[in-house]
Structure formats: structure tokens, C-alpha cells
């Protein structure tokens, strides 16, 4: 009986450890995440590292998922959508080569986490979400966290935000089989656009588009894999 009790106690303690580690000290969890999953995987852009260290990722995920917020994997946020894994957020942000003065358009607000990371680096972020529920939640979170340089909008991101354009950079967070023509016209000369290529549940590349003198140059950044996250996980 004593052995059984000891087993139960140890199990309970072990089960609560990860929760305590993140809930009690999210800042430390963030620093660990940045060191291990971002810098450790070859991303050295100081602005990106600083932004990732500052943004409280756990505030952008559902309550039940908070203890897993700083793992290097995507998490479901409702409406069949996910918050991208930290490495992908960092990689996409780094590849935009941001200096700090940009006006950035993000297509697919989702949880608002990517917009928050961008807001730490650039001047203004415009972000569009097609799903009303996600738009509401993300806007509330961003307002609570006092991000004043982020503008959110509930609309179809395919058509961009012509009134706010042109943009220095555009980030599309959903995979598409073609780059939406309306977005290209909202990209400044010399502007950069980044998006994932391929099915969101399988092998993917990142694609960086640069506009120069009316021509478009596409750089394909191979070898990005998104962990599958759907089915039951998305409910």
C-alpha cells in the first residue's frame, strides 16, 4: 500500500512539473525556447531573437495549451487553425530581413502571435484574418498586451488591405498554389513577401518573393517541415 501511495505521489509530482516550469516562469521558458529552438537551429538575427524572447507566447494559446506553449511545435487555437511552431515564426521573420522602419502586412492573423513578434521589430503591422472568431480573440489579446502598432481587420486576406498599402513586406501564413495578384500590387518596389509552399500538413518550402522593377524574383528556402496538426488535435 505504501509503495502504491509513493507511486501515485511521484506520478502526480512528475505530471505537474512541466506545468509549473512554464506557468510559474514563462520568461525563463521563453529564454530556453529561444536558445534551444531558435538560436540552436541557426537563427542569429538579434532583432528576431529579442522579439521572440519578449512576446509571451503562452498568452496567445488557449488556456488548456499554455503549458505546452514553449515547445517547438504548433498548437491548435480553434477554428481548425494552429499557432505556428516558434522556429517557423522566427525563420519567416528572419527571411524578411527587417530593419525596423517597415510597414508589414500579415495575411492570416490566427492567434496574433506572429503579428506581435513583427510588432517588436517593425514600425507598423497590419494583419487580416478571415475567421471572425479568431479575429476577435486575437484583437482582444493584442489590445490586452498593449500592442499599439498593430492594426487588425476581419476580411479575406486574398485581397490585402489596399487602403493601408503599399507595404514593405507581406507575410502569408497559409499555403497557396499561386500568389494572390492583389497582394503583389500592394507590395512596394523592392518589397519582400514570404509564404509557405505546399500542403500545410506535409513537406513544405518557404518562398520569398522580391519585387524589382516590375519583375518578381522568387527564392525558395527548402526543407521546412510543418508537424501535422489536424484531425482530433484541431477540435
Amino acid at each position: 500500500m505504501q509503495l502504491f501511495r509513493a507511486y501515485i505521489t511521484i506520478t502526480l509530482v512528475l505530471c505537474t512539473l512541466p506545468w509549473q516550469a512554464t506557468a510559474m516562469n514563462p520568461a525563463e521558458a521563453r529564454r530556453t525556447m529561444v536558445a534551444r529552438d531558435i538560436r540552436g537551429r541557426g537563427i542569429h538575427d538579434l532583432k528576431v531573437l529579442a522579439a521572440m524572447t519578449s512576446v509571451p507566447r503562452h498568452r496567445f494559446v488557449p488556456q488548456a495549451m499554455q503549458r505546452r506553449a514553449y515547445g517547438d511545435h504548433p498548437l491548435p487555437i480553434g477554428d481548425g487553425q494552429t499557432i505556428s511552431q516558434p522556429y517557423i515564426v522566427a525563420l519567416m521573420t528572419t527571411k524578411l530581413n527587417l530593419t525596423g522602419d517597415e510597414k508589414v502586412l500579415e495575411i492570416g492573423t490566427g492567434s496574433g502571435y506572429q503579428a506581435a513578434v513583427l510588432a517588436h521589430i517593425v514600425k507598423t503591422v497590419y494583419t487580416i484574418e478571415i475567421r471572425a472568431n479568431l479575429h476577435r480573440k486575437a484583437t482582444r489579446t493584442l489590445q490586452t498586451l498593449k500592442y499599439t502598432n498593430i492594426h487588425t481587420r476581419h476580411a479575406d486576406g486574398y485581397f490585402g488591405w489596399p487602403q493601408a498599402g503599399p507595404f514593405d513586406c507581406i507575410m502569408i501564413t497559409a499555403a497557396v498554389d499561386h500568389i494572390p495578384p492583389p497582394l503583389k500590387s500592394q507590395l512596394k518596389e523592392g518589397g519582400r513577401m514570404i509564404l509557405p509552399q505546399g500542403n500545410p500538413f506535409s513537406y513544405q518550402n518557404l518562398v520569398l518573393v522580391t519585387k524589382k522593377s516590375g519583375d518578381y524574383f522568387v527564392e525558395q528556402i527548402a526543407g521546412v517541415l510543418f508537424v501535422p496538426m489536424t484531425g482530433e488535435a484541431l477540435k
Binding site: 479575406d156 499561386h178 500568389i179 495578384p181 518573393v209
Partner: peptide
Amino acid sequence: SPSLRFAPGLSLTYEGPL
């Protein structure tokens, strides 16, 4: 759905609607 937009092989220089 208004979100159906299939245009594989579309040129990047095309800026018109689908």
C-alpha cells in the same frame, strides 16, 4: 466558396482578378 482560387502555374506578373 469565395475562397476557391485554383490557378497553378500563374505568372507572378499577373495582377488581375481570378
